[in-house]
């Protein structure tokens, strides 16, 4: 195995690693934030809103992420490019970047998967606890913030850990829309030096380490939660 490329490309790989982590964290945070209302309206919302949320989850979970990403990057991107006002605006440097579309696609996709999880999570909180909170005179928003959401999140923490790993494993798709993430960097090495296996094996090992770290981190957080089982 030829590792002579490593010193030259190491900075690019590290830069790629940081991009991968950025994409993962930003899209996870955005996705989960969106997932809370998506899950909530399916449990308590009016019927039409609940239907929309359900349809959203079905579409996001029923189509390949790659197609969603291309739809945003090439599809929406090419439509946006037809507006000259937009091309001259200060937003254009962002709207041109694959990085932006990758985060958008991953966050919306994650919201679909996590929305379904949050629906189950909200349902799993015992009714009595919500009634008790209401009996204390809490407003609906206070019930959500102090009782319902924390209890729901606690119940699905392990599932969300798995979801984070799945999102990590979809981040290399960003390389297909010109983002030089960890996988993109390895791909660049392959294109420039024709060395195939060592860079791919190296990033494979890094992805395994990241998966391990995420697993451990969620285990630590889970331990913080006092529970009687």
């Amino acid at each position: 195995m030829d590792w002579s490329w490593l010193p030259k490309y190491l900075p690019m790989l590290l830069q790629g690693l940081s991009i991968t982590i950025q994409i993962l964290v930003i899209s996870m945070v955005l996705g989960l934030t969106l997932a809370v209302p998506i899950g909530l309206v399916q449990v308590t919302g009016p019927k039409w809103l609940s239907r929309i949320a359900q349809a959203y989850c079905t579409v996001m979970r029923g189509t390949p992420l790659l197609i969603q990403l291309y739809l945003f990057y090439y599809g929406v991107g090419s439509i946006l490019a037809t507006f000259p006002e937009l091309r001259q605006s200060i937003f254009w440097p962002i709207l041109r970047e694959g990085y932006f579309y990758a985060i958008l696609a991953f966050a919306l996709n994650e919201a679909g998967y996590a929305g379904e999880i949050m629906r189950g999570a909200f349902l799993s909180v015992p009714k009595g606890e919500l009634e008790a909170a209401r009996a204390f005179g809490m407003t609906p928003f206070q019930v959500l913030r102090r009782v319902w959401l924390p209890r729901a999140l606690r119940n699905v923490l392990p599932t969300l850990g798995g979801e984070t790993i799945l999102t990590l494993k979809s981040t290399p798709l960003a390389a297909l829309v010109t983002v030089v993430d960890l996988f993109g960097a390895a791909d660049r090495v392959r294109q420039e030096t024709y060395i195939i296996y060592p860079p791919l094996l190296l990033v494979m090992a890094i992805y395994m380490i990241l998966t391990f770290i995420i697993t451990r981190a969620f285990a630590v957080v889970e331990k913080q939660i006092p529970s009687r089982r």
Binding site: R61, G62, T63, I67, Y70, L71, Y74, G75, S78
Partner: peptide, 30 residues
């Protein structure tokens, strides 16, 4: 996905083709 990519690249109608292809995948899933 490959056919969609070819068709979209050839006609430059990216949104249309990725949308249609998404619908086909969705139909398979449903």
């Amino acid at each position: 996905a490959q056919m969609t990519k070819n068709a979209a690249g050839f006609t430059k109608r990216y949104f249309l083709f990725y949308f249609v292809s998404g619908c086909i995948y969705l139909a398979m899933t449903l």
